[in-house]
Computed example of a mutant assay.
Amino acid sequence: MTGGAGSTACFADYVVIGNPIAHSRSPAIHARFAADTAQDMRYAHLLAPLDGFAAAVREFIDQGGRGANVTVPFKLEAYALADQLTTRAKAAGAVNTLKFDNGVILGDNTDGVGLVSDIVRNAGFDLAHKKILLLGAGGAARGAVLPLLEERPAQLVIANRTVTKAEELVRQFQQYSEQPGILSACGFAQATQGFDLVINATSASLQAELPPLAAGAFGPAALAYDMMYGSQPTVFMQFAAAHGARVRDGLGMLVEQAAEAFFVWRGVRPHTDAVFAALRSQL
């Protein structure tokens, strides 16, 4: 198998493909989903060369592959490789899920719906008519905008260090907003109006840094959600908690986006509670 995956991917129906990839929890997640839903499927890691993503995918297809999760740094290449794109993949401009069917490569993006599922179902937080602040204007934020808009919030403000990038996202997604004025952009310092939900889609938590966010961003009984996760609360979560917000990390998003990919491939929607609890105990 191209990219050094060796026999681990040769006998798989599905893979998670990236570089690096050995750290991915996807095989364990999907093995549990398959067992819980009585699905006969085999899932493995696939390491693709940085300059050989498309070739690795096509070789996997030739060996009987039926689908793939795609992680860094290949989500844009997966978008370009797909023959067909779902609406949410087109909106995100990136693909994290590929389905191979009768010679056609379907590209999807389940990140945003995974985020929304975790917030609405697992955290019990209804997004309808809420004021939402989305921090960041990169790929993670881009994948979240459409699923958030579909929940019909009262307001969705995209804040970014470089405001022009946030404004670009607003222009791109304005067509998906049912009412004018729901979407807007600002800098971090201008986000002070007391939001119901604040989502950190920046990479700051990876460096244990805090976006330059005003304490006034958190409204009464606000939920602060960090897309990153770990064994300890992130700096963003600590800051939010200190200012009265309820906090949640992105582990549930990881599990829920995987469940959505599983549904895309198999047509069966797995339960996620047990997988989430198992992963949390391992952090």
Rank of each mutant, 00 (worst) to 15 (best):
A221Y: 14
A245K: 09
G244N: 01
F262N: 03
L254F: 03
D273R: 15
M237Q: 10
D249E: 12
G267Q: 10
D273T: 10
V268S: 04
G267A: 12
V235T: 03
Q238P: 07
R246F: 06
V235K: 03
D273K: 12
E260K: 02
F239E: 00
V275L: 05
F236V: 01
M228V: 14
Y225S: 01
F236M: 05
T234F: 04
A259N: 14
A274N: 09
A258E: 09
E256S: 10
A261L: 11
M228P: 00
Y229P: 00
V264I: 15
A221S: 15
Y229R: 05
A261V: 07
P270L: 07
V247N: 11
E256H: 14
A274W: 03
M227Q: 10
A274V: 11
Q232A: 11
G219S: 10
Q238V: 09
P270G: 07
A224Q: 00
F262H: 11
P270D: 05
R248Q: 15
P233R: 02
Y225N: 07
P220Y: 12
A242P: 10
G230F: 04
R269Y: 13
F239N: 00
M237F: 04
E260W: 05
M228E: 07
A259M: 13
A259V: 10
V275W: 00
Y225V: 02
A259K: 00
V268K: 08
R266P: 00
A224C: 05
V275I: 10
D226S: 09
A242E: 15
F263I: 06
M227Y: 12
V264K: 06
Q257P: 06
A261K: 09
D226K: 02
A258R: 09
A242Q: 13
T272I: 08
A261T: 14
P220I: 12
V275P: 01
V255D: 08
A240T: 04
G252M: 13
M227I: 14
